[in-house]
Each structure stands twice: as C-alpha cells, then as structure tokens.
C-alpha cells in the first residue's frame, strides 16, 4: 500500500469545493438544506431550547415547583454569588474535571498505543477496556458504592486483609473525591482508548519508521511525533470530557451524596438538591443556567480553535 494511496483514502476532512461550481444551485440548496434540517431543528427547539428558556425564566423567580411563585429578578444570582456551597461545588466540579479528564486520556492513550500493534486476543482485551463505558450510570454508581463502601466494601476489606487500614471513602473529603475520580476514570478510559486507537490508525507508519531509522527511541517518537499528530483528537476528547464532567450526577449522588460536608458536591448535584430536596426551583434553575454558560464558553473557545485549524489546513 503506497503512502500516496493511503493519503488519498485518509479521512482528513476535505476542504469545501470551490464556491464557483455550487453557486448555480445555491438558492435551491439552501431551501433543501433548511427543509432537511427541519425535523432536527423542530425537536431541538421544542424539547431542548424551549425548556432551557423556561429554565432561564424560572431562575428569575422564587418557586417551590407548585403553588405561588414570586418574581425576584437577579435575586437568585445575587444569592449564589455569596453562597459558599455554590462556590465549593464549582471548585469541586473543576477539580473533578481537572483530574478525571487528563488521567483518563493519558491512560486511554497508553492503552491504545499498547494495543496498536498486533497482539493475540487484542479484540477481547479491547472489549474489556471498553466495557465499563457501556454500562449504565446507575449500575456504575451502585457498583462503585458497593465496592468502595467504607465499612463492608471489597476495597477496604482487601486492604484490611493485608494489614492496611481501610480508607474513609465516604466520610473524608480527599478519599471521597478520589473514589469518584477512580470510578469515573474506570468508565472513561475505554472510550478514550477507542478514539485514540482510531486516530492512531491515521498516523502513517512512515513517520514512525523514519524516526526509528534516525535513531530516535520510542519515547522520543512518542513525544515529538505521535502526540502532536494526535492533538486534534486530544482536544476533542478534552472538550467532550469537560462537558461530561461538568454534568456529572449519578455517581456522586449515589456514592457520596455530595458529602462529607460539601466535599464532593458538584454543580449539578447541588442544583438537584436545591431543586428537589430543598424545593427552591428558581435557585436550582439559576445554578443550572450558570453551569450551562460556563460550559458554553469553554466550548466556544474550542470552536474557535477548531476553525483556526481547519482554515490552516
């Protein structure tokens, strides 16, 4: 297989064909485009954007979900500004994302690299690493709580069996966050692995071979050739990971309930607790709005970078 043919087949997104050839049917195209997009746009509009707008609107009120509601304008937001738990949950979410995403990516890449070359039983191994990703959030949360149960969970029982003290997975701040991160990484490694595996297939072996013959050892190959080539994939995974992390709910809710204290309270769990436990739905809506905006900004930044790259190609 020649390098040229491979390049021809490679899935680099081809830049758009020169505008000249399309202009004739452009108007008709636009109509068709909007027409074909209508079902999606309708569904998004009605079932996502409308409720989102309703949430914005709700955040301006004080409401218990039923019964009378009271307009407070920016009252909820002002209260949030001074709410220690809110800032703590924002910090926790950032810490959680800041650890989970890089760790799962690095591990995913490591596994992908290790699996990138022929190995017997590779398909089976790949499935094993991917398996946790496929399991539902409820099951993961329940399993995590069971395994990391401070009193009777298997992790502590194993530790004690070898003479080590058990770790306070639920009742101390740092271990609780660690347990969450471990469980999350467990589920995310497989996904990162699959994406990196796919991306690695697009790294022409010639680059690696050329480096080898030049005497560069594997580690240098890795750092200076492979990782930069994978940067777009990494960026994609990072953004996706950050979006997912900012919305983390199931595991936290089941494993720690946000505790001990506020040590593992996350933005969405706090919003849920305020909305459904404390019945302050306006307040919860405000938290949701802020969470949404933060992630929006982060993604907008990524989009800008993406466009710059596509333009550069």
């Amino acid at each position: 297989m020649t390098a040229a043919a491979q390049t021809a087949v490679t899935t680099l997104p081809t830049p758009s064909t020169p505008a000249r050839r399309r202009r004739r049917g452009a108007g008709r195209d636009a109509l068709a485009a909007w027409g074909l997009l209508t079902p999606n746009l309708l569904l998004f509009g009605v079932f996502l954007l409308l409720p989102l707008a309703a949430t914005f609107w709700l955040s301006l009120y004080r409401s218990s979900g039923f019964g009378p509601r009271e307009f407070v304008g920016t009252g909820n937001y002002r209260e949030l500004a001074g709410d220690g738990t809110f800032w703590r949950s924002a910090l926790n979410t950032a810490v959680y994302a800041g650890i989970t995403v890089p760790v799962s990516l690095v591990l995913g890449l490591g596994v992908a690299l290790a699996m990138n070359r022929p190995l017997r039983g590779r398909g089976f191994l790949r499935a094993v690493y991917y398996l946790p990703y496929v399991i539902s959030g409820v099951v993961v949360a329940v399993a995590g709580r069971y395994v990391f149960n401070e009193n009777v969970g298997i992790v502590n029982r194993l530790l004690r069996a070898v003479g080590l003290p058990g770790v306070a997975w639920q009742s101390e701040a740092v271990p609780a966050m660690t347990a969450l991160v471990l469980i999350s990484v467990w589920t995310k490694v497989g996904f990162a692995m699959v994406v990196y595996l796919a991306a690695l297939q697009n790294v022409p072996k010639e680059y690696l071979e050329a480096a080898s013959t030049d005497g560069a050892n594997r580690w240098q190959q890795l750092r200076h050739i492979v990782v930069p080539l994978l940067r777009p994939t990494t960026v994609f995974l990072v953004v996706l990971g950050v979006i997912e992390s900012f919305q983390v709910f199931d595991v936290v809710y089941v494993l720690t309930g946000g505790g001990p204290g506020n040590a593992t309270e996350m933005l969405v769990t706090y919003a849920y607790a305020e909305g459904f436990d404390a019945r302050r739905q306006g307040y919860a809506a405000a938290i949701g709005v802020l969470t949404y905006l933060v992630v929006l900004v982060l993604t907008a930044l990524w989009w800008r970078r993406q466009k710059a790259q596509e333009a550069a190609q």
Binding site: R145, E150, N151, V152, Q170, S171, T256, G258, G259, P260
Partner: peptide, 20 residues
C-alpha cells in the same frame, strides 16, 4: 459510630446486618 453514619451518609440499618 461509623463516620459514614453522619446525616449525609447511607442508612444505618445495613450496618447492623453486616455486624459492623
């Protein structure tokens, strides 16, 4: 008392059956 039986912890009756 087990630290996990604070007010944000998990319901305590489980620990009785496990002899904790």
């Amino acid at each position: 008392v087990p630290p996990t039986t604070s007010t944000k912890g998990s319901y305590v009756d489980e620990l009785f059956t496990t002899q904790t």
